[in-house]
Every structure is written in structure tokens, then in C-alpha cells.
Simulated scan of single mutants.
Amino acid sequence: MATDRPVWTATHVGRVRSANEDLYLVGKRMGAEPVESWSGTMAVDHGWAVIADGMGGHEDGQIASRIVIETIARSIESVRDVADVSTMIENANRKLFEAMYSGQGRPGMGSTIVGVVFLDREALVFNVGDSRAYELRRGQLLQLSRDDTLGGDRGRRGGHALTQSLGGTATPQPITPRIRRFRLEDHIGVLLCSDGLTDMVQESRIATLLAESTTNPAEHLAKAANDAGGKDNITVVVIGTKATIAPSVRRTQSSQ
């Protein structure tokens, strides 16, 4: 099995919002510019990527996503199993509330999170909220995450209320991270994205766009979301090779 894979990222403020409240982490790289794209490689024997989509409006959303990503960055290298993921996410949630109580940001600020940790021949995918993770497998786009929304089984989620997030309330509430372990093979890739992509672009269209020839598939998807209206911040991370992607789609969700 290959020890590294190509990775592409893109983040964009969109056409409506005044600030980018999304923040991503790929290895040691953190991306938070209003508009940014990048490409590189990731070690699949122990690599990771995470997206946080901040909530609370402008500065508070940016504060929330940064607290989450910075907290995750300090511990994700030690993640080896489901219990480690749960502890890491609970710690990020606790740090958010500590920041609220200390006057850093306002009560109720919050963030969704989605991420993947590669562990040689396996991977752990996790999420809280409505940012998504997909497996890219020989022409199929398979949803690995599970939306924490009212009506979370629908293809478009704009306007649907979140049923859980990191922070997002005035006082701490119990959270149940969605965590899924799956077998990693050479032909499997992973797509992570904030809902700024999936609210604007249907999954079948995402699969088609991924199959098209482009230097940065993440940037290609972000452009499609902007072309469709760009009503929210858009962040995309694509990990894999062109061989993992073809224009067809199958959708399912974890039962966890």
C-alpha cells in the first residue's frame, strides 16, 4: 500500500458572507484565508484532515472554528482508536465553553466538525453537525458521516436545524460524535466538505465534477458551489487519486 497520497484543499468565503468562518487542518497545515487553495501529499500510515465550520456570526464563528481546530491539532497525532476520537472531540467542546465563560466570543457560538485519521490500512471518520465525509471508491460517492440535522436524510440541508454541534448553546450539552472505522485500500479516496458545498451542489453533480480533469478537484468543487450561488462559506478537502473517482454516485449513512 502507498505511504502517501495526493491531497487538494480549497476554502472560499462564498458570494454572500462577509467572512470565512470555516477552518481546515491537513497534517500540520491550517487554512483560514477568505480564499485559498493548496495541494500536497499526505501519509496514509498516519495522516489526518479536519474541517470546522464555525457558527455565531462573523468573529464569533471564526473564534469557534479556530478553538476547535487548534485543540484538535494538539491531540490528533495521538489518535489510534474510537475512544481517542471521542476524547479529542469532547475536549474541543469543553474548550469552546471555557472560551465563552472567559469572555472570548459570545455564549452560543459553536462549530461543526468533520475529519478523518488514516492509520495504515484503516481510517477513522468522525463528525458532529452537518459537515460531511464521503468515501470515493471506483465510481461511487459513499457518505460516511451522518448529518446531525432535523431532516438529515435529505439531499439539501439549507435551513435545517442542527441537532448537535460543538458549542452552539449557552450551557454545555451532551454530544455524541459520529465515528466510523473503515478498511482503507489503495483505490479508496476521501472527500471532506462543509455544508457550503453540499447545500449548493447535488451529490451526483459532485461525483461528475470529481471525474473531470482539473489541477485541483477541491477548488473545482468550490467554484461549482459559488457558481450555484455561494450562499455560505465553502471548504473542501479531497484525498486520493484520479483512479478513485468516476461519475456515478451511491449514498448511504453510518448507523452510528
Rank of each mutant, 00 (worst) to 15 (best):
A2H: 04
A2W: 08
T3K: 13
R5H: 12
T9Y: 14
T9F: 15
H12I: 02
R17N: 02
E21Q: 14
D22K: 08
Y24S: 13
G27Y: 10
K28L: 10
R29N: 13
M30L: 11
G31E: 01
G31P: 04
S37N: 14
W38S: 05
S39E: 14
G40F: 01
T41C: 13
M42A: 06
V44M: 11
V50E: 11
I51V: 13
I51Y: 04
A52H: 02
A52L: 03
A52C: 02
A52K: 07
G56R: 10
E59T: 05
D60Q: 10
D60A: 10
S65T: 00
V68I: 05
T71L: 12
I76P: 03
V79R: 09
R80E: 14
D81F: 09
V82L: 10
A83S: 02
S86I: 07
I89G: 06
N91D: 12
R94K: 15
R94C: 11
R94L: 13
L96R: 12
F97C: 09
E98P: 06
S102G: 09
Q104H: 08
Q104S: 02
G115S: 05
R121K: 12
A123G: 08
V125R: 04
V128E: 01
G129A: 11
G129Q: 10
S131W: 00
S131E: 03
Y134P: 11
R137C: 10
R138A: 14
L142M: 03
Q143C: 10
Q143G: 07
S145I: 04
R146N: 06
D147L: 02
D147I: 05
G151F: 03
R157I: 15
T163I: 03
L166K: 07
G168S: 01
T169D: 03
A170T: 13
P172I: 07
P172E: 08
Q173I: 08
I188R: 15
L192Q: 01
L192A: 00
G196Q: 01
D199G: 09
V201W: 08
S204N: 13
A207K: 06
L209I: 15
E212Y: 00
T214L: 07
T214V: 09
T215I: 15
T215E: 15
K223Y: 03
A224K: 10
K231H: 13
K231G: 10
I234C: 06
K242Y: 09
A243K: 14
I245R: 15
A246I: 02
S248Y: 12
S248K: 15
